[in-house]
């Protein structure tokens, strides 16, 4: 499971960085979204990967899952979602103001 999770995170980060380095704002937005998915998975995994364990104190629990990373991930998801929606609005605004969707606001030279 560790290998699966780490491969998934690595793949998401690679795709995210590739898209972030592109010159169009929507690509960058999607890249940032992928990067934040990867980060959320990473945060989630920082509490160790265990299945079927008690999150709270129970008398017959052999092992505990760490509930804190889930709280952290929840916060991170909410903040990331808000930020992404703001960025989408800003990208549309910039498209309207600048007349194209290049991140530097200049039409690409062909």
């Amino acid at each position: 499971m560790e290998i699966l999770i780490s491969t998934a995170i690595g793949f998401l980060v690679a795709c995210g960085i590739y898209l972030m380095l592109r010159a169009r704002t929507m690509d960058v937005v999607i890249g940032l979204t992928l990067l934040s998915y990867a980060v959320n998975l990473f945060l989630f995994a920082s509490g160790r990967l265990v299945s079927n364990s008690a999150a709270l104190i129970s008398p017959d629990a052999a092992a505990y899952a760490d509930p804190l990373p889930q709280a952290l991930v929840l916060t991170a998801i909410v903040i990331g979602f808000g930020m992404t929606s703001f960025l989408v609005v800003l990208a549309i605004r910039a498209f309207g103001d600048l007349g194209n969707d290049h991140v530097d606001g200049e039409a690409s030279k062909k």
């Binding site: 704002t25 960058v28 940032l32 703001f86 990208a91 103001d97 991140v103 606001g105």
Partner: peptide
């Protein structure tokens, strides 16, 4: 401001 803002936010 839109352009500078875009860079800053990203």
């Amino acid at each position: 401001r839109s352009r500078a803002g875009l860079h800053y936010v990203i």
